[in-house]
Computed example of a mutant assay.
Amino acid sequence: MRKQLRDDQWKQIEGLLPGKVGDRGRSGADNRLFVEAVLWIARTGSPWRDLPTQFGRWNSAYQRFARWSRAGVWHRVFATLGRERRFREVFIDSTIVRAHQHAAGAPQKNGAQALGRSRGGLTTKIHVVVDAIGHLIQGRLSAGQVHDVTQAQALLDGVPARCVVADKAYDAAALRQSIRDAGAKAVIPPRANRREPIRWSKAIYRHRNLVERFFCRIKHFRRIATRYDKLAERFASFVCLVGTFVCMQ
Rank of each mutant, 00 (worst) to 15 (best):
S46N: 05
D157Q: 15
V90W: 13
I198G: 00
A154V: 14
T124A: 13
V246A: 04
R32C: 11
N209D: 04
K230A: 08
A232F: 09
A173D: 03
A103R: 09
H75G: 00
F87V: 05
F245R: 03
R217F: 03
L155V: 13
Q145S: 15
A232C: 03
G120Q: 12
D229E: 15
E212C: 08
D30S: 09
T53I: 11
S69L: 00
D131Y: 13
A192Q: 15
C240T: 02
V211A: 05
V159L: 07
Q138I: 08
W74R: 08
D181F: 14
A236F: 15
L136M: 12
D148H: 09
I179F: 13
D131S: 03
G120P: 06
Q177W: 14
R223L: 10
A174L: 11
F87H: 09
N31L: 15
Q113F: 05
R223S: 00
H127S: 11
G15H: 14
I137F: 12
P18Q: 05
F235H: 04
Q9G: 03
T226L: 08
G22K: 09
D50C: 10
I179C: 10
V146K: 01
S118H: 13
D229P: 07
E84R: 15
A192W: 04
A42L: 09
Q153L: 15
G15N: 13
N31Y: 11
L17K: 03
G45D: 03
G243I: 14
V90E: 05
A169C: 07
L51Q: 00
Q9E: 12
R57G: 10
W40P: 01
F87C: 06
W200H: 08
D8L: 09
A152P: 05
G243P: 00
R191S: 09
A104L: 11
N209Y: 15
F87E: 00
V211I: 15
R117I: 12
L51A: 04
T244P: 02
R86T: 02
I133E: 09
S46Y: 10
A99D: 07
R2A: 10
T226D: 00
Q151S: 03
G105P: 08
S118E: 07
V239D: 00
D93Q: 11
Y205P: 02
H75A: 12
A184E: 08
R223W: 13
F78I: 02
C247T: 08
L136F: 04
R64Q: 09
D93I: 15
P47D: 06
F235G: 00
G139P: 01
P160C: 12
V35H: 01
W58Y: 14
A152H: 07
I137Q: 05
R67V: 06
F78W: 13
R57D: 14
L141S: 04
R194S: 08
F91G: 02
P190L: 12
Q145E: 10
D171K: 06
A236C: 03
H147C: 09
T123A: 06
Q151P: 00
T124Q: 12
G72Y: 11
R32E: 13
A152G: 08
Q153D: 13
R195I: 13
R213T: 07
G139C: 10
A29R: 10
L231A: 06
K20G: 01
F245Y: 14
R2P: 12
E84P: 01
D148P: 09
R223M: 07
A173M: 02
G120N: 11
L33R: 14
R213N: 07
R49Q: 10
